[in-house]
Design a protein around this nucleic acid. Structure first.
Lengths: 203, 203
DNA sequence: CGCATAGTTGACTACGCTCAACCCTGGTGG
DNA sequence: CCACCAGGGTTGAGCGTAGTCAACTATGCG
């Protein structure tokens, strides 16, 4: 989550960290690539997708500034998913072997890492749970509520609507349509890229 | 995954491990319960479900003999999901604080635990990916292939069909129907509780 | 100014869900 | 030993809704 990992890092590891810049759409790693590093987003936004069958895929994670990706592959040989930039981005590279060594030597670091893994897994669960909601209407409301800043009733969408649609497993059309319907029914109010949930929807 | 955790355990922790027996349907922990332990299935089978909204839920994990559950909550205060037995089961209880202490002291143990977490996360991803397949037919085929023992073309279903349907996110009826259709089309052959994939479906 | 891509809306279709009836099995009790 | 019952499994009919295809508008960028 936080860039904590970096700050609490032993000196010798910190010096091994490289960076890489990516253009929108550029791929950081793809399925089958050998795992050489774990990544932290320094700026921008990456998405990790998992492919299945031959023509289906799911968004497994969206990593924003300060968040990490690829840690799941730390103990694997190759990646099983694909990561690409949604916007111009810069990532930090934590070399796999050095990181593993550091995890053995520094219990605090290891504990942070385990926390990180747990958080990631919880996010996966939330994603999975969201998909369990069949109705587009309910799923969108649940998504909006989940993304509400604490104490606020307004969520700001900083991504393309079609990317969000993809993210929550709806076709873009269904997403647009249902947003429009929610607006018309007075459940939400849209001003530009921010959406306000009316009190009728209070969780 | 494996009971590895137990065997490689320091003596003082091993002596703290209790067991608990559960009847089918009996709940091991539910949403909101304080986390006191992490569990390993010694015999039987448990399911972990995550609730969302007020009337939807997903199966997040099915833990069989030797597999663990609840590790994700090791660094949390309360459980965010619910675990119950599908069949008569016995679980081992690893006390939370003792386990965390042990993880700090034994790098090998910590590494095993991180591997375990990674494996769990990958399973979650696979679940998520499965849900991304909209067609019942394809989803079932994918599920069957994923559960094929290596080198074999036959998968044996040791659970109730309706539980499996629930697991993969289909209504029982849709599941039965589609199995029947696959049978009729010659894509699978059923003898009792085992299903053979015909060569036509070779991945 | 023009092109590419996002966003929006309409019409139609397909497929999974729901409800309902029914069979079949195993277990229990009289 | 049979009657009954409960729950899983199976099939049918009909409906609702999300996906698809398509047309069109809006927006940003060269």
């Amino acid at each position: 989550m936080s860039i904590l990992l970096l700050e609490s890092l032993p000196e010798n590891l910190r010096s091994l960290i490289l960076t890489r810049d990516l253009q929108p759409g550029e791929v950081l790693f793809r399925h089958g690539d050998p795992v050489e590093a774990v990544y932290v987003v320094q700026s921008g936004r990456l998405r990790v997708v998992h492919h299945i069958g031959s023509d289906h895929s799911v968004v497994v994670l969206v990593a924003r500034t300060g968040e990490s990706l690829g840690e799941l592959a730390l103990f694997a040989e190759t990646f099983t998913c694909e990561a690409s930039a949604e916007v111009p981005s810069r990532v930090l590279l934590y070399p796999k072997h050095a990181l593993r060594e550091a995890l053995r030597l520094h219990p605090d670091l290891a504990e942070d890492f385990m926390r990180l893994q747990a958080r990631q897994a919880m996010q996966l669960r939330s994603r999975l749970a969201l998909r369990a909601i069949p109705s587009a209407r309910e799923r969108i409301l649940e998504f909006l509520q989940a993304n509400l800043p604490p104490g606020s009733r307004t969520v700001t969408l900083d991504r393309l609507l079609k990317d969000i649609a993809d993210d929550i497993g709806l076709s873009p059309e269904a997403f647009y349509r249902t947003l429009a319907a929610l607006q018309k029914q007075g459940d939400i109010v849209r001003h530009g890229r921010s959406i306000e949930l009316t009190n009728r929807i209070a969780s």
